Computed example of a mutant assay.
Amino acid sequence: MKTKRKVEIAVISDVHLGTYGCHAKQLLTYLNSINPKKLILNGDIVDIWQFSKRYFPKSHLKVIKKIMDFAADGVEVIYITGNHDEMLRKFSDTTIGNISIVDKLVLDIDGKKGWFFHGDVFDISIQNAKWLAKLGGYGYDLLILLNRMTNWVLSKMGKERYSLSKKIKNGVKGAVKFISDYEKVIAELAIENGYDYVVCGHIHQPKMEIKENKHGKTMYLNSGDWVENFTALEYQFKRWKIYNYSHDKLSPFFADEDVKEMEVKDLIAAITIVDKTQK
Rank of each mutant, 00 (worst) to 15 (best):
N147F: 14
Y79T: 01
K166L: 11
K156I: 09
I124P: 00
W152E: 14
K113Q: 06
F91Y: 14
V106N: 11
W131V: 12
V102Y: 02
R161W: 10
I109W: 05
Y140R: 05
N83R: 07
K130M: 15
D110A: 08
E160M: 12
I80K: 03
R161D: 01
R161G: 04
A72G: 10
D110P: 01
G82L: 09
F116G: 02
K130T: 08
W152M: 14
L107D: 13
A175V: 01
M157L: 15
D123K: 07
G111I: 00
S165N: 15
T95K: 15
E160S: 15
K166A: 12
A175G: 00
T94S: 13
S163H: 07
L154V: 04
D123Q: 12
Y162L: 14
M87T: 05
Y138K: 12
G114W: 03
D73R: 07
A129T: 07
G114H: 02
L164P: 01
D73I: 00
H118I: 01
Y140E: 01
S155I: 09
S92I: 08
N170I: 13
D141E: 13
S100H: 05
K113S: 09
I80N: 07
I168M: 12
D73P: 04
M149Q: 15
L154T: 09
K134L: 12
E160P: 10
G111A: 08
M149D: 08
R89D: 03
G74V: 08
G171D: 06
N147C: 09
Q127E: 12
G139V: 04
K156F: 07
L145G: 03
R148M: 08
K104Q: 14
S125N: 15
K167Q: 13
D141Q: 10
E76C: 09
